[in-house]
């Protein structure tokens, strides 16, 4: 028999692949979780009584652990019903761990709630896999940023000049117009928004042959993400510059 008074029983969702992006203490023994799920996008849940001594979920409900979660409730107050392992936890160390926090902070800030992005989930998973391999490679983060922008509909048109439609030439310089694209500039003036054609083509190919390309890619991604992030800065990015 359906109990109509407890309508949320009808909203039970089970065994969804998910990662925890952030958790906050809530009341005495509960947690407020922000999760990135494969099919439901970013959601917030209350996990009741999981901070106690006897809770089995204590070690499971951490960032970078692939989970299968079940929850119930309407969009406002959703409760975690169950969580289990969905593969081995990612063991991130050192700079790679800080990078993991960076990915989580980015997703928390730019992903709207309950907006599913299944391809992004795969990208996030694969990026964590790369971070787990040990040494932090800058290009891992750049590619994540690039794919994140593309997935959210802010993908950069790196191979063409938006004003003329001509192909980007490696030896030329281009000015970046946020949300529009790149436009050829006559000479190099060392401006913040100016990029070498070679760097743009390299990023389009997802290759970083030299230091200049890596630096330009980092600068470009910062500018491109800034319009999504608004005025406030990313805390984990700051942490990074201080460590190095």
């Amino acid at each position: 028999m359906i109990n109509y008074y407890r309508g949320w029983d009808l909203n039970k969702i089970t065994l969804q692949p998910a990662f925890i992006l952030h958790r906050r203490a809530y009341r005495e023994t509960s947690l407020l979780l922000d999760l990135f799920t494969e099919s439901y996008g970013r959601i917030s849940l209350i996990a009741r009584g999981v901070r106690g001594h006897r809770s089995r979920l204590r070690s499971l409900l951490q960032p970078f652990v692939p989970l299968l979660i079940s929850w119930q409730g309407k969009s406002e107050l959703m409760l975690l019903n169950a969580a289990e392992n969905n593969g081995a936890p990612f063991q991130l160390r050192g700079d790679c761990l800080l990078s993991g926090f960076y990915l989580n902070e980015l997703l928390m800030r730019v992903l709207p709630k309950q907006d599913p992005h299944p391809p992004l989930y795969t990208i996030y998973h694969d990026t964590l896999l790369e971070l787990q391999s040990g040494m932090l490679q800058q290009h891992t983060l750049r590619l994540f940023e690039k794919k994140l922008l593309a997935e959210l509909g802010y993908g950069l048109q790196l191979q063409y000049d938006f004003s003329t439609g001509e192909k980007v030439v490696a030896e030329q310089f281009y000015l970046f117009y946020p949300e529009q694209g790149f436009k050829r500039s006559a000479s190099y003036a060392g401006e913040k928004m100016q990029f070498k054609g070679k760097s743009l083509l390299a990023l389009a190919e997802e290759e970083f042959p030299d230091e200049e390309c890596r630096r330009d890619a980092k600068r470009l991604m910062r500018i491109a993400l800034a319009s999504l992030l608004g005025l406030s800065f990313l805390h984990s990015r700051k942490l990074f510059t201080e460590v190095q």
Binding site: H22, N104, E242
Partner: peptide, 10 residues
């Protein structure tokens, strides 16, 4: 502890 998402830094 460090928690960038809560704004807790060094």
């Amino acid at each position: 502890h460090l928690s960038p998402l809560d704004g807790i830094g060094p």
